[in-house]
Design a protein around this nucleic acid. Structure first.
Length: 752
RNA sequence: GGGCUUGUAGCUCAGUUGGUCAGAGCGCUGUGUUCACAUCGCAGAGGUCCCUGGUUCGAUCCCAGGCAAGCCCACCA
């Protein structure tokens, strides 16, 4: 053995041992008690970040521990198509070539992204391997694999039959630049100075930063407790407006802030989320004045066709001309929604979207946690889940992007002539309009072949099916929200409904993931799991903390403080990085990237390496001198043990119990720390020093080997490479690798 | 505005039912190269456990209030 530990060699050798043996392939018929973890799928075209490293370290720790305990341990790897993110990345690539997604029809664009992902997919897969993740690659799943897509489509079809799916108007965050909607999670608010206009509505005055949206007003609202306006509530007011005489009802709603502006709010349900809510409460008309092309609609009368900002300017001009602007507050600062990546302005628009009726799904998923069928660790995170589930609203599941699973709906052209289609015609020019009218100039096949997107009216008639129902149909072009498919990840990976895997491994044991997706992902998986199988998809949920940068701030490209795990792997090794991160995350709280700890565990790897060297050197020289073998602990006459031998044995037994107990409670750092201190302080600094002076060397060497090898096993799930590599140097133990050796603590009983 | 979390040695943090609980790693100071390891050993310095009250025989740990920090959700038109 070399004098110093080489992490690169260890990683190479250990991986070789594991890959050759195929030890991580699980069997659905072994008779062993199953223990299952599903890897939260990283973005297929992405790169490993520190969060992924922590996730893999923790899950590998759990799965290796359970495997050694005698469970049928299954860890399913996979990757996610990451709809919007991937499409955005791809479009950035297109832009470099001077192209955009509008240069292609939907199918062509889709297959190009398929190629793009295929080219980039290996990176993350290799990185997962490099991490030493003991996953079962034979069950590798990509969210767009055929069987995965089929599960999702079947679920959707069932939900349609069960009346859980409907189409409705919805205020979406729409980017004209990207031509798609954004989820709330993708929006940030930017502070900016916007002039606040005080506009007269007859006897009342309203303050707004968006005068053009007044064209879509369908009421005025005041707070029910506002004494100034009591007399108007419930009455119509008539006044001169930019489009001629106008009439609006005054309603009372507690949403209205008495203090803001004049205390009177103009309600524009089509272009503001809150106004939309008010509209629902009071049954107001939704008057759409901005179209998905970013221009004013016919409802805007003489402003129709203008871009939003143009229209705003013109409306202000006209209002001024009519003397309807009371004053302008130029110093007003407000928050405007922008795309969190590009910073582009987001418009709120009402569009027909697909929805999941959440109520029937929500309650059982809430109860599952309340009734402890699903346990969330750490406990204090549970409230996030409970509160979300208590207040969950219907879930819009359609996204206006190409990259994803297409909603399997088909529209008969004959029955729905009002469908708006956008397509590339035979000459490659973008053409848009109502399909009923376009069919005069184009064949349906032309439209279908060049189809980019389609907007069906809310009341459109549709057929659900994986295959096109026949001639005369156009496909829905919206895709599912990524969470709709990843929410079925446990069903998809285990091949629901009738595979051996599903029967054996469902429900899974523990879901390990970051806390930030409790609401988006965990909640959906529980809902789908119960809906389809009657059982939640996992028993425990462990939520790890976020890793912040070394400076204590969130990692972000703009701050330039992003940590690339590869640098640490290169310098200190995978084991040190894993152990450092595990030890940083004590109880699921966020933590700063623990640079010093990683260094410390690199040293630790070297320490245990040298302990092995010492042991081997001593044993060898003893055996050469005396010509007799040092016996294994089981063969040793226990009468020969000295006080210090009994003491170290007792401490070792204590350690085993402590490790199991802490891991059982997901207290990873406590377990790791205990092993670290036992090996370094008790074994290396304590016992080994005594061995050097022992008369009965054979007894001491025997005890040393036993305690060392046992603690090596305990350490293996934490630092798999170093321990496996050292193990391979220890003669006479067993021919099997450490990874599948027997755990020192309790073994699980076989499944009946 | 609603919620969660944190405030312990120079730094990053442990401290699991209130009584050797004042700790670890790194850093720092001094020191050591005889047969595992300088990615090491030995010795050492250091803290009003955020502040103020309360409960208790006793509180870093429980309660109330305050101060400070981070994050999540909602987003005053």
């Amino acid at each position: 053995m070399d004098k110093t530990f080489e992490h690169k060699t260890a990683q190479e050798k250990a991986r070789e041992i594991w890959e050759k043996g195929g030890f991580f392939k699980a069997h659905a018929n072994s008779g062993k008690e199953p223990f299952t973890i599903l890897l939260p799928p990283p973005n297929a075209s992405g790169k490993m970040h520190t969060g992924n490293v922590l996730m893999i370290a923790l899950e590998d720790l759990l799965i290796r521990w359970k495997r050694m305990q005698g469970y049928e341990a299954l860890w399913v790897p996979g990757t996610d198509h990451a709809g919007f993110e991937t499409q955005t990345t791809f479009e950035r690539e297109l832009k470099k070539e001077g192209k955009s997604r509008f240069d292609f029809d939907r199918n062509t664009l889709y297959s190009q992204i398929v190629d793009f992902v295929q080219q980039n997919k290996h990176q993350i897969e290799n990185q997962i391997k490099e991490m030493g993740a003991s996953v079962d690659w034979s069950r590798y799943t990509f969210t767009l694999d055929e069987h995965a897509v089929n599960v999702v489509l079947d679920t959707f079809e069932k939900m349609v039959k069960d009346g859980l799916i409907y189409r409705s108007d919805y205020v979406v965050n729409y980017s004209f630049k990207w031509g798609t909607t954004f989820s709330d999670a993708e929006i940030v608010y930017k502070e900016q100075k916007s002039p606040l206009y005080y506009i007269r509505y007859g006897p009342l005055t309203v303050a707004t930063v968006r005068p053009e949206s007044k064209l879509g007003d369908t009421a005025l609202a005041v707070n029910p407790n506002d004494d100034r306006y009591k007399e108007y509530v419930g009455k119509d007011i008539e006044f001169e407006d930019v489009l001629g005489p106008n009439k609006l009802k005054v309603i009372a709603d507690p949403y209205v802030d008495i203090e803001f502006g004049t205390g009177v709010l103009k309600v524009t349900p089509a272009h503001d989320k809150n106004d939309y809510e008010i509209g629902l409460r009071h049954g107001l008309e939704i008057r759409n004045v901005v179209g998905i092309n970013g221009r004013m609609t016919e409802n805007a009368g003489k402003y129709a066709g203008m871009k939003v900002l143009e229209a705003r300017k013109k409306v202000i001009e006209d209002l001024n001309g009519m003397g309807l602007i009371e004053k302008v507050d130029e110093d007003y600062e407000n928050l405007v929604p922008v795309d969190y990546r590009s910073g582009d302005y987001i418009e709120q628009l009402v569009m027909p979207n697909w929805f999941v009726k959440v109520e029937p799904l929500r309650k059982p998923a809430l109860d599952a946690v309340l009734e402890k069928k699903v346990n969330i660790y750490p406990k204090w995170r549970e409230i996030t889940y409970l509160r979300w589930m208590e207040n969950m609203r219907d879930w819009p599941i359609s996204r206006q992007i190409v990259w994803g699973i297409r909603i399997p709906a088909w529209y008969s052209v004959e029955e729905n002539p009002d469908i708006t289609v956008t397509f590339l015609n035979g000459k490659g020019a973008i053409t848009s309009g109502k399909v009923g009218e376009l069919l005069g100039s184009y064949t349906l096949k032309e439209i279908e072949d060049g189809l980019q997107s389609l907007v069906a009216p809310k009341k459109a008639v549709y057929v659900i099916g994986k295959e096109k129902p026949g001639d005369g149909f156009l496909p829905e072009t919206d895709t599912f929200d990524t969470w709709f498919s990843s929410g079925q990840w446990p069903l998809v990976t285990l091949k629901y409904p009738d595979s051996e895997d599903f029967k054996y491994f469902y429900p899974t044991s523990v879901l390990e993931t970051g806390w930030e997706i409790v609401t988006r992902w965990v909640s959906r998986m529980i809902m789908f799991g119960i809906y389809l199988t009657g059982q939640p998809p996992f028993k425990d949920v462990y939520l790890h903390g976020h890793i912040r940068a070394i400076d204590g701030r969130k990692m972000s490209k703009s701050l330039g403080n992003v940590i690339n795990p590869d640098d640490y792997i290169e310098k200190y090794g995978v084991d040190a990085l894993r152990m450092g991160l595990i030890n940083g995350t004590a109880n699921g709280k966020d933590f700063n990237f623990p640079h010093d700890k990683i260094l410390g565990y690199r040293n630790f790897a070297n320490k245990i390496w040298n302990m092995a060297r010492f042991m081997l050197i001593m044993t060898e020289s003893y055996e050469e001198e005396t010509g007799e073998k040092v016996p294994f602990f089981g063969d040793l006459d226990q009468e020969l043990l000295q006080a210090e031998d009994l003491e170290i044995m007792e401490k070792l037994n204590g350690l085993i119990g402590e490790v199991d107990k802490n891991l059982e409670k997901y207290r990873f750092a406590d377990a790791g720390d205990a092993i670290y201190h036992f090996m370094w302080d008790e074994l290396a600094s304590g016992y080994i020093e005594k061995v050097k002076g022992r008369e009965d060397k054979v007894v001491a060497l025997c005890v040393l080997r036993h305690t060392y090898v046992t603690s090596l096993k305990l350490l293996h799930p934490f630092m798999p490479f170093a321990t496996e590599h050292i193990w391979s140097h220890l003669p006479g133990l067993s021919n099997e690798p450490l990874a599948i050796s027997k755990w020192p603590g309790d073994q699980v009983k076989p499944k009946k």
